[in-house]
Amino acid sequence: MFRHWLLLPVLLPLPAVAFDLDDLQRRLGDIPGLEGRFEQQRHLADLDAQLDSHGSYRYERDARVIWQLEAPVEERMEFTPDAAENIADDEAGNRRDAQVASLFLELLGGDWQALDEHFDLSLEGSDEQWHVTLTPESSALKERLERIELRGGEFLERLELNAANDDELRIEFFEQQVIVPDSGDSGEAGHADDT
């Protein structure tokens, strides 16, 4: 079939342009990789139910995110920039998810230029405590997403995604530390030390 319903772009490098969030981008962009722990809460409005999960993650710039779910089920997930095919290989992934995965990578990487293609961005706060709000521009995206909010200091600390159907996704990142990814240990999800 010829037409399709691609809604989101894949991650892409762009020449730098003057932008309000320039500094923040440069600072986040300097980080080659991160690992740490996360806590995720998904609120399903329709069921009025909450799905909580937690685990560890490993982020490698422009390469991948490994999402190691520890509870309630053990599950290892991997997201890559042009993941459409890669993810489809392991069963449940699908194209739509892959697009959301791309978005997820852009959010983690603070890739404002890529995000600016589809969202209105606004920045508040200071270097130490910043808050970026993303509102979708296209009507296609608006039908699914209401708003995305990112908060952080040195790193991204909190991601909040409000879907158009009132579902909510909240992810807190903590115990984060910079890593320099190399080919040697890239297969393993990093486990940050407990405090």
Binding site: Q40, R42, L44, D46, W67, L69, E75, D97, V100
Partner: peptide, 22 residues
Amino acid sequence: DPALRRLFSPAGDPQPVDDPFG
């Protein structure tokens, strides 16, 4: 298992009532 992954994936879009198995 794949359905579980959809529910807990940060990049998923789960619909447990309409289509839990996607």
